[in-house]
Nucleic acid binder design. Structure first.
Length: 218
DNA sequence: GCGACAG
DNA sequence: ATCTTGTCGC
């Protein structure tokens, strides 16, 4: 008999962490965008049962890649909607800690507060590393779509937690991760969008790099 | 029972 | 996320 993972236990842990996340969310101020030096993007690719987690650090103003780190491991649990962090966050956290520079902001492929319990992988990682974080996802996970002044948002847990924009013909869900306002998350993300990639530079490069490494190409 | 469901 | 060929267009 082998239990792959304990769903109820994972949910319990998320609720406890969410309590901390919501508590610190009340006193979040605007970030001085001029003080942001380094941003990091994390993503993973899979190959033959192994997960290749990558953290890419770039200079915010120029978009130049300064360094990256890789963490290879067997995924702890299968993919379960709502529990993505238990599968991928450990690798991302290790990868970020391996970097020589300390990032000011972390971009994550996935949602933050726009999650059933307000603890998407972006929030999870920000909380553990105690760094501001932003979630940028390609699909909706949770929340009610609201249209305000012609712009689309996601409402969840009694607040607006994400903004939906269109980029290169597809939607992007930009959500509050940790210690950041939705306004700043939106501003930072749009500043890192380029005509070349569907995702903002940090996660776009992390996505590309993780795939190249996992499939040993180029 | 039905629909939803990040990566 | 991953499995997969060709095809259309610049």
């Amino acid at each position: 008999m082998s239990i792959v993972f304990d769903y109820r236990r994972a949910v319990r842990i998320q609720r406890a962490l969410a309590e901390k996340a919501f508590k610190s969310i009340e006193n979040i101020g605007r970030i001085d965008l001029d003080k942001i030096k380094y941003v990091v993007g994390v993503d993973a690719a899979y190959h033959k049962g192994l997960m290749y987690g990558v953290a890419v650090l770039l200079d915010f103003s120029s978009g130049n890649v300064l360094e990256h780190s890789v963490v290879i491991k067997k995924p702890p649990i299968p993919y379960v909607p709502g529990l993505l962090a238990f599968r991928e966050a450990p690798a991302y956290i290790s990868a970020v800690l391996k970097l020589r520079h300390e990032p000011d902001i972390i971009f994550v492929d996935g949602h933050g507060l726009s999650h059933p319990r307000g603890l998407g992988i972006a929030t999870h990682i920000g909380l553990v590393l105690d760094k501001p974080s932003i979630g940028v996802a390609k699909k909706k996970l949770y929340g009610e779509i609201r249209e305000i002044n012609g712009e689309k948002y996601l409402e969840a847990h009694g607040m607006i937690v994400a903004r939906i924009i269109k980029h290169k013909g597809q939607e992007l869900y930009i959500s509050i991760g940790y210690k950041i306002t939705l306004e700043d998350a939106y501003l930072l993300t749009t500043k890192l969008l380029t005509p070349k990639y569907k995702l903002p530079l940090p996660t776009a490069i992390a996505d590309q790099l993780s795939k190249r490494i996992a499939h040993r190409k180029k």
